[in-house]
Structure formats: C-alpha cells, structure tokens
Write a protein that binds this DNA or RNA. Structure first.
Length: 153
DNA sequence: GCCAACGTTGGC
DNA sequence: GCCAACGTTGGC
C-alpha cells in the first residue's frame, strides 16, 4: 500500500466539504499537471491512504486522512466546455486528465500545521512537502514518514 | 530542442 | 500583496 499527501485549498474544497458528501466520498478532480496526472493514473491504488493537506489558508497543514477508493479514471470536468477545468485538448477518446475518488477516513483530532512539520524535519526526513518550491498537488509519502507524521498528532 | 516569457502555486 | 520556484507555452 502506498501513502500520499494531497493538497487542496479549503476555501474551494477542504476536509469539511468532504465530510458532508454522501458516504464521505468525492472525486479528486481538476488536476492539470502531468507529473500528478501520472501518479493518479498509474500509481495510486485502491486502499492507499493520503493526508488531506490544506494550502493557501490561515494555518496550512494536514487536516485529515483519506482513503483512495478507485483507481485513476478520466476526469470528466476536462470535457465540459465552460467548466473551470475545461481543457479542449483533452479528447474523450484519449483522455488527458485523470482523477481518483477519495473517502474521508477521519479528521485529525488536532491538525498538524506546516510549521509543526518543519519543526520536526529531523524526524521526518526528506518529506517532499517541506522542500522549497514544491508545487505538486499530490506527493508520495513513505511508510516511515506516514507514521512519523501521525505521531505528531 | 532550446530558452525566454508567462502563468500558477503557495507560504509569508 | 509580494515574490521565489517552477511548469508550460510557443517562437525560432
């Protein structure tokens, strides 16, 4: 099983939005970056776990844990003319963009702020989120890092 | 295939 | 609102 960290802006879609969805499930749509697309399409597997990270907000950090409940499949928002994530270069016959469905496992009892992650950089090793200039909205997390992060809760 | 310009991300 | 980082675009 793989572990991941998935970023989203809570003003757009956060843990609270996911908690209100039927069966606490939602599609992780709108990814328009090839590196992340490849992870969604090729590497994420049903049953994988991911941290739900809130970015561009008052206290950036990890707020929840989600489970990947589907393999990657074509992102239909790319085909919807007028949609914010529409991409006319994505052909339904050869989809360019992919997404997975996620299910909220739980909210963290106490969110783990980015500043806390930084403060524990020694323990966490090469956590990709802590790297300067990291702009990928999904990054892999090792099993060791996963447990080290949860221990900070 | 190079690379400058441009756009986006995201912390502060 | 600023700015560093870096992915993407497009001219050549």
């Amino acid at each position: 099983m793989n572990h991941w960290l998935m970023k989203s802006e809570p003003a757009t879609f956060g843990v609270e939005h996911l908690a209100k969805k039927p069966r606490r499930r939602a599609a992780w749509d709108g990814v328009r970056n090839y590196t992340v697309r490849n992870m969604l399409r090729d590497q994420m597997k049903k049953g994988d776990l991911a941290f739900f990270y809130h970015s561009s907000c008052e206290v950036p950090g990890i707020y929840g844990i989600v489970r990947i409940v589907t393999e990657g499949y074509p992102d239909p928002t790319a085909f919807k003319r007028g949609h914010a994530h529409f991409d006319d270069k994505s052909d339904p016959k050869a989809p360019r963009w992919f997404m997975v469905d996620v299910e909220l496992v739980r909210r963290l009892r106490k969110p783990i702020a980015l500043s806390t992650l930084h403060a524990n950089a020694q323990t966490l090793g090469e956590l990709l989120i802590l790297k300067r200039g990291n702009r990928l909205s999904i990054v892999p997390v090792s099993a060791e890092q996963w447990h080290a992060v949860i221990a900070l809760e």
